[in-house]
Amino acid sequence: LRLEVKLGQGCFGEVWMGTWNGTTRVAIKTLKPGTMSPEAFLQEAQVMKKLRHEKLVQLYAVVSEEPIYIVTEYMSKGSLLDFLKGETGKYLRLPQLVDMAAQIASGMAYVERMNYVHRDLRAANILVGENLVCKVADFGLARLIEDNEYTARQGAKFPIKWTAPEAALYGRFTIKSDVWSFGILLTELTTKGRVPYPGMVNREVLDQVERGYRMPCPPECPESLHDLMCQCWRKEPEERPTFEYLQAFL
């Protein structure tokens, strides 16, 4: 395994491009020591290896001592969030954005069929390849993070704006909380990567959403798509659509 080009840095580690087995181009995620327990990670990795779908980033291998390494397929255009905010983002029109959403829903419909939960679905965790191919990455890892700023769910590192209220408040993460996050991801797509709930801080978002506030229809977004977002944001988790439905609708 060779680490060649550093692609990015996040709160919990770095991402590199490299070569595996001398020939395969891969992405390598390294986790800061202390982010998660190697034992817990190894268990999760076994499950992650079983998830194989064309719209999920394929896991190739893991190094399960500290520092933990995760070796996955390489996606040339990086994260969907950076892609939307970058040069190419300007030229993306609604049909392409909807197609990308459908690809993500397709990957998540598979996660749904496998009775698995992602827990951290957002544009930053979707990767883009050639020809606007989108794949879901980092599934299941969020559960293992041991950082206090994260586990408190009120901490600075927790993605509260993407998280369903029952998950943020009571830790009830299910495929239905993933559906909520998918609704937020749809706003990221239609606004080219704007942060959700602009002008609001995490605490406010939690309070307002509890009181029934939902983001309005983004500019140039059809009402039918906003309606779909609002279905994803129904207060009762069981009233939210399935990913199978979302995939078919898109």
Results as ranks from 00 to 15, higher is better:
2 R>K: 10
4 E>L: 15
4 E>C: 14
5 V>T: 15
6 K>M: 14
8 G>M: 02
9 Q>H: 10
9 Q>D: 05
10 G>R: 01
11 C>L: 04
11 C>R: 01
11 C>A: 12
15 V>K: 00
15 V>M: 03
19 T>Y: 10
21 N>K: 07
21 N>Q: 10
22 G>L: 11
22 G>A: 13
23 T>F: 11
25 R>V: 11
26 V>I: 06
29 K>L: 01
30 T>I: 04
31 L>N: 14
32 K>I: 15
37 S>Q: 05
38 P>V: 08
41 F>G: 04
44 E>P: 00
45 A>K: 03
46 Q>I: 05
47 V>H: 07
47 V>Y: 04
48 M>T: 02
49 K>W: 04
50 K>E: 14
50 K>V: 13
51 L>F: 07
55 K>S: 11
55 K>I: 06
57 V>T: 09
57 V>N: 14
59 L>M: 05
60 Y>F: 12
60 Y>T: 13
66 E>P: 13
71 V>M: 06
75 M>P: 00
77 K>H: 08
80 L>A: 14
81 L>V: 14
83 F>M: 08
83 F>H: 10
85 K>C: 11
86 G>H: 13
87 E>V: 13
87 E>A: 12
87 E>G: 14
88 T>F: 12
88 T>R: 11
93 R>I: 07
99 D>I: 14
100 M>R: 04
105 A>L: 08
105 A>F: 04
106 S>A: 09
107 G>D: 03
108 M>P: 02
109 A>R: 15
112 E>P: 05
113 R>H: 14
115 N>A: 06
116 Y>D: 01
117 V>S: 03
117 V>C: 10
117 V>L: 07
117 V>Y: 01
118 H>L: 01
119 R>L: 02
124 A>D: 15
125 N>F: 00
128 V>K: 05
129 G>N: 15
130 E>C: 14
135 K>D: 03
138 D>I: 03
142 A>T: 06
143 R>T: 05
146 E>L: 08
148 N>T: 09
150 Y>V: 02
152 A>R: 03
155 G>L: 03
156 A>S: 15
157 K>T: 07
158 F>N: 03
162 W>A: 03
165 P>K: 06
168 A>T: 05
170 Y>N: 07
170 Y>Q: 09
171 G>N: 05
173 F>D: 03
174 T>W: 14
175 I>L: 15
178 D>R: 03
180 W>Q: 02
181 S>N: 01
184 I>H: 03
187 T>G: 07
191 T>D: 07
194 R>P: 00
203 R>V: 14
208 Q>A: 12
209 V>S: 07
210 E>S: 11
211 R>D: 09
211 R>C: 10
214 R>G: 03
215 M>P: 08
216 P>G: 09
217 C>S: 10
219 P>M: 12
220 E>I: 08
221 C>S: 07
226 H>V: 07
232 C>H: 05
234 R>L: 11
235 K>V: 11
241 P>R: 07
242 T>F: 14
243 F>C: 10
244 E>C: 10
